[in-house]
Amino acid sequence: MPTRRTLLAALAVVPLAACQQSRGPVQVSAADDEAAWYIGTKPDKPYDVPLVDTGRLDPKYRRQVVSYTGPEKPGTIVVDIDERQLTLVQAEGSAIRYGVGVGKLGFSWKGEARVGRKGVWPDWSPTTTMVSLNPDLPRTRKGGVDNPLGARALYLYQGNRDILFRIHGTNEPWSIGEQMSSGCVRMLNEDIVDLFERVPVGTRVLVKRNGKYRV
């Protein structure tokens, strides 16, 4: 298993992103460098999951159990693009809420979908649109701690069609709460692992903007 030093060295590689930032990587100042975000790892296979100092996040973006009065059934994932939050509805009026990063203006998707498949330390490939915007992008990248999809990915489908939007981990924890990706919903690696273990394939996913998921 990689040591913490090896892990941080890998994370220092500039991300390619998927569901990549469309304007280039965030600039992290020397006083707030990447390594300072990480406090250790959680055992996983084939790589350990990087753990983040969540004290650096706005409290609203930290994983928490909250009251929930919405109409959605337990087990539903509700993503609020405006609030930068993902909610997993639970029974008896409660929910688990996670902070997320979302697509920048013009890239965010809204609607209803389902989890069509799940990936562990998934490989990354750019969409046709991403390649048209940046022809120099590599066409694939193997899963790992420096992969922009992070430790897990939930692939969103409508019917039998992969709509090319994902809920996935990130190697840029400072992007949680921001609107900067090419459309996908990104979570801390430790949070996507937690969500991944709670939801099966077939889970209903509602992605809302302006309080609505329907056009």
Rank of each mutant, 00 (worst) to 15 (best):
T6A: 14
T203G: 08
I39M: 09
R63M: 14
D191R: 01
T3E: 04
A18R: 07
A36R: 15
L105Y: 10
S182P: 06
D191N: 03
T129R: 15
E178F: 02
L195I: 00
V131M: 08
P148Q: 00
D48N: 05
R141Q: 15
L206P: 09
Q21L: 11
L154R: 03
E83Y: 10
G211Y: 03
P135Y: 08
F107N: 03
Q85C: 13
L57K: 05
H168L: 04
P50H: 02
T203S: 03
V205S: 11
P135F: 05
Q85S: 14
D80S: 06
P71W: 10
I81P: 05
R152C: 00
R114H: 07
N210K: 13
M180P: 05
K212S: 15
P138F: 00
Q158S: 13
S175G: 01
W37Q: 11
A35Q: 11
V49F: 03
V102C: 08
Y155A: 07
D33N: 11
V13G: 01
P59E: 09
V207G: 01
R84H: 11
N171A: 02
L86K: 12
G169N: 00
G119P: 06
P43C: 08
C19F: 09
T129M: 07
V201N: 12
V205D: 13
A9R: 10
L105R: 10
H168S: 04
R161Y: 10
L51H: 11
V193G: 11
R139T: 09
A91G: 14
P59G: 09
M130C: 07
P148T: 07
P71M: 08
P43Y: 11
C184N: 06
R161W: 11
L164P: 04
D136Y: 08
T87N: 10
T87S: 11
G159M: 03
T3Q: 02
S22V: 15
L8N: 06
L16E: 04
P2D: 07
A30D: 15
T69C: 07
I167C: 08
V207P: 01
R97A: 04
R4F: 14
V145T: 12
S29R: 14
R97T: 08
A91P: 13
K212F: 13
Y68R: 02
D32T: 04
V100P: 01
L133W: 10
